[in-house]
Write a protein that binds this DNA or RNA. Sequence first.
RNA 1: GCGAGAGUGGCGGAAUGGCAGACGCGCCGGACUUAGGAUCCGGUGGGCAACCGUGAGGGUUCAAAUCCCUCCUCUCGCACCA
Length: 875
Amino acid sequence: MKYQPQAIESKWQRRWEEAGVFRCPDAITAPKFYCLEMFPYPSGRIHMGHVRVYTIGDLIARFKRMRGCQVLHPIGWDAFGLPAENAAHRHGTHPAKWTYENIDFMRQQLKELGISYDWDREFATCRPGYYRWEQLFFLWMIRDGLAYRKRALLNWCDECQTVLANEQVNRDGTCFIHDQTRVTQRELDQWFLGITKYADELLSGHEELRGGWPENVLEMQRNWIGRSEGAEIDFPLVDGGGKITVFTTRPDTVYGATFMSMAPEHPLVLEFARKAGREREVRAFVEKVAGQDKLVRSSGELEKEGIFTGGYCVNPLTGEKIPIFAANFVLYEYGTGAVMAVPAHDQRDFEFAKKYDLPIVVVIRPEEDALAADTMTCAYEGPGQMVDSGPFTGLGNDEGKREITRHFERQGIGRGKVQYRLRDWGISRQRYWGCPIPVIHCEVCGVVPVPEKDLPVVLPEDISYSREKGNPLAAAEEWVRVPCPSCGARARREIDTFDTFFESSWYFLRYIDPHNDREPLDPAKMRAFMPVDQYIGGVEHACMHLIYARFFHKYLRDKGLAPGNEPFKRLLSQGMVCMATQECPKHGWRYPDEVDAEGRCRQCGEKVEVGRSMKMSKSKRNVVEPSALVERYGADTARVFSLFAAPPEKDLDWSEQGVEGAYRFLGRVYRLIAQRASTLSAAPAHPCASGARDSLESDAGVLRGDAGGARRIRQVTHRTLAKVTGDIEERFHFNTAISAIMEMVNSLYLVDDAAWESPETAPSLREAVEILLLMLSPFAPHVSEELWERIGNKDLVCRKLWPQADEEAARAEEILVVVQINGKLRARITADADVPEEEIRAKVLADPRVREYTEGKEIRKLVYVPRKLVNIVVG
RNA sequence: GCGAGAGUGGCGGAAUGGCAGACGCGCCGGACUUAGGAUCCGGUGGGCAACCGUGAGGGUUCAAAUCCCUCCUCUCGCACCA
């Protein structure tokens, strides 16, 4: 009777597939439930992070199916991306071949885990059947003015020969792939999507998500979108009649603006310098800042530095001529790239002013005390009353903000403005392995969108890899050369491809209609299955992916394709999978199997140092291969361990011994039931376990008449059932659900042989075992099926309904009341469950142990928490 | 620097105002056995005890791991956001 998962697991995976149990038909016949995990990038093989997220998703999917829902649980591949090209360069394999082979391998790995996907809906985003539709969306976006071209300063990696997103640049200013290569700034024509048009809605949409999404993710998005209210103000230049516009959240402090700071990258900086004959020194400064690494430039400790550009502008309220500086802390990307400097009321400006000996003018007076410019040691950024502010003197500064803004608006030199940190989404990538951007560049007509009838623009897969760098598409002459769709002249295709976040921004919709080749999405089907009821993925996608996907969904809603305002009703962001690192003094990081049982390096015999538990990563070698794990313990063990070791939102510490424990538990379940398979088959089945709820009442009545043994068994069963149901459904605490099942198994082990055979208790035990298997099946589906069959069931356990806990059976006839004296635990009493409060009070006070503490003392207060606790306060 | 989160036995974790340490790992003991690193059963926060124990200190409460304040440590995110 040995538990041998390998044989069991492949058998049931085959059965499920044959029976098509996880296929979700288009026609909805029960409440739908859309369960989605973030789809994987096909990097080669799955890792423990995948095991964790797909196990969590599968648990929910299987549970909801048993709850009677029609569950849509799809999977696919986020298949475009740079790693495929890097692999191509390194190993000479074609990105397409590499990607498809990885997909085949990983699909197999996922199937080995027994995840209940509807594989009929699987797709890879690198297939024209998928990406042709996002090319169409893009054409719509151009027409709607949502996609536009802009010359922009972008991070450029010489090694990749491509543009990087900010998040792809390491903090030390190097490329995230080539960490030896310094990222430089380049100005290129790029496509942008106007996500900022939706900024307000992306923010207000949080109201709808509150409750279903983790608060910290909403908070991160709120910070990312970064709405701030203020004003744009024009500062006229002293020569030349031009102006510089700044954005400020403190229009109330304009009277205190004594100079101006501009981002070194700002084109006007060098222009001012040229006019003033200061070009050499200013250019040196600009280049110095450009070369400064990101870490230094973004840290709070950055030494404020700047240089006078030679230009002056006029403070529009004081009329004073103020100098214009280039300063290293001003960001070109935010606002207008220029800031009015108010040293008295902004700390950075204060530091800058002190360093370069610029005037400090106080214009806000705090409640407590007036400020004096010469004695200030730091800026005052708080609220107060306006002083030295011309006609606005005396106003509260909040009122001042409004009044001054209004004043500027009347003068036509400023306006109230809501500014977002969120920037429009640059989507152009100088990469081969991505979706071609469907436009054509004509010398006569300029940028011409590919006509819809000519879609898709298929990425040519028969390209050569002779070029080491840059985009191989540039060399695919026969593909690039096309006649201009509008004038017929010789023209060239755009060789840039989409950012791969483009694909992941709408894949959840396409799963609902994956094979549609007439239109991207059938709105009727979308209405039937959207929104995603439960989305599961890593918190690292809190900002980018989840904001882009919400944005796409809103846009597609506006196009009449997607229903509702928000695509993901509930979000679960699961924690990382961590493991202790092991470091050999000679050989550095060691994989677990490079260390022997004594903790010595297998290569040199030196004692390895066991470090803190950190996120599993190849670079630190603190990884466990899912395939090896499944081969050794089986998928059910891998699943049970990942669900048991920690609640889903917390980081999970991988532990070999913990895995052993999970394996042992399943072996224990297996032995308990397999040993008695024939006895259990012979026992009359309990209708409750078969999901026939209608007849529950009458039959349960009969069972309630059982001897005490049966009563106790049913109590354990239904109490466990209630707990497990609640833990899964309401709390998402799968670890405590498993521990409750473990406790039930422990109890069943204590049932003696006679009881298993006895006609009095056998039906209750059969019910217990059936309910146990039903509860276990979403966690460990294979062994549950196997045992379900062994005890004489013909059908599949994954198709059964989740049983309903019988409250009457679960009810305890005795209650335990804890007695505290002055808050300290002193006694416990038991009483019949329905005893009135008075009787319990009397019983407590009569208890000898209680009397010991109350004798001769005044009882000042007695707190009674019904059926739980009594606290007696004595003087 | 800003923002979010977390600190509980030897370890992972339970308990979200009401018995701190469920469950699992580890460890200890017993049974079975030729044998056990299999399996089954039992024990296991500290202290001889009174008692003491949830990062530290204060507070609210009949009652605090849980709520509030101050501080410390760690983790994650960040674009000095004007």
